[in-house]
Design a protein around this nucleic acid. Structure first.
Lengths: 228, 228
DNA sequence: TCAAAAGTGTTTGGTGTACACCCATGT
DNA sequence: ACATGGGTGTACACCAAACACTTTTGA
């Protein structure tokens, strides 16, 4: 008996801004099956290509974007998930900064668009499920891994970080306690400058993520809990 | 260009006992590549077979065992990981009770054996890495998921549960605090009987895991932390 | 001067952690 | 009686949670 299984690598690419919330990158299918529905960027893996390389390549081709962070998430292998036959999907989680998320379509490329994660259009295959799984994955990872900083600008006000966490965990957080906790860990480094021209209100102090400090904490044994 | 990628589903099958610690099930390869080295149970996925079904089938065929718990873990896709060509491995974590872990070889089946996780023999492919990843996976999951109970007998003394956690997190835990924490959650139900014929010392109270209570806690919103 | 967001400190309750003695059994 | 593991309670420290007023800016 000969095995015939095809494999795709796809990515749930997320960006966040306090204004629009969490958004996911989708591309419009131009061929059947599921023609004209929206799906995850990705595609068939080349024979000699690592999975992550495939995601990067397809993402570049389809949208011109470069993920700031990429990790494998889960593999979707239900035999009936694709009407064309057996197609395995190795799903990835990709994060990108809002400021670097402008889509540039290549020649003859399908349409691509950012959609609010909580207001998806009609999606192809099991891709809506995969997006949901990605958010669940984020929920687990954000407690202990500094993935939030992969979505924020290099310099950001604390409130932006806080709102990201509020979005992911879908609850409000006390500003003062949040700041205290984060400062207690020493993971943020204050920048000399402040946020220029806020839309309203007092300009916020800008911070950047102290990656070295995080590594240090992590290696010092005790588990690091960024957010509870 | 035609895609030619083969796919295997394999499992890191674990059992635990306080006497021997965590052990992993390995099978001895009888054909090249890596002939005579030890590898994970598993094999090529049938065209119309779900991934988990494949793991169950191969496990049954190769060792006569039935996993008590099975979940997908990660997919290993490096192009050079198998000298025969491109072979993707969808790795799973499987748990089994020590009392149900006696290997029964089928006809003409390869040799299979339990090995202490921290004293592996010479392994095939990247399987040693996959075992390490499984332990790491357990470490993350055991904080919040009741997977420990999938490895213990239906009825068990608290000390057995405690020692399992001590093994996984590789540190000692205060008996009294552990008991208090677990009882506080109400996840254990005392059984009327006590452990018969302990090797030494006072017979321990037996408990069983209260799955309904766990579900209830989980659904009541706040995240359940079984162990910190 | 008003609206909007940012910055800051104290109190309190709950929980993780450290710690020591007695109990039940087999030998 | 002794060795071995099982069962239990208390004190302390720390951290998470609740909570309100002042400051800085643009309009």
């Amino acid at each position: 008996m000969h095995q015939h299984i095809r494999v795709t690598a796809e990515a749930v690419v997320l960006r966040y801004s306090s204004k629009e919330g969490m958004m996911v990158l989708l591309t419009k299918r131009t061929i059947p099956p599921h023609i004209f529905k929206w799906g995850l960027p990705g595609g068939f893996v080349h024979n000699d290509e690592p999975l992550e390389a495939c995601v990067h390549r397809e993402l570049k081709d389809e949208t011109g974007l470069k993920a700031n962070y990429l990790e494998q998430m889960s593999t979707w292998g239900h035999p009936e998930r694709d009407p064309r036959g057996r197609v395995l999907c190795v799903a990835h989680l990709a994060l990108i900064r809002h400021s670097a998320s402008k889509i540039v379509l290549g020649m003859g490329t399908k349409e691509a668009k950012w959609y609010p994660v909580r207001e998806l259009p009609v999606t192809a295959f099991d891709h809506a499920e995969i997006v949901a799984a990605a958010i669940e994955h984020l929920r687990v990872r954000l407690h202990t891994e500094p993935l939030a900083f992969e979505m924020l600008d290099e310099k950001f006000p604390v409130s932006e970080l806080e709102k990201l966490y509020e979005w992911v965990y879908d609850r409000s957080v006390d500003r003062r306690n949040f700041q205290k906790k984060i400062n207690g860990l020493g993971l943020l480094a204050a920048r000399p400058e402040k946020l220029k021209h806020p839309l309203q209100g007092r300009p916020a102090q800008l911070y950047s993520f102290n990656r070295d400090k995080f590594r240090e904490l992590k290696e010092s044994g005790s588990p690091v809990e960024i957010f509870s």
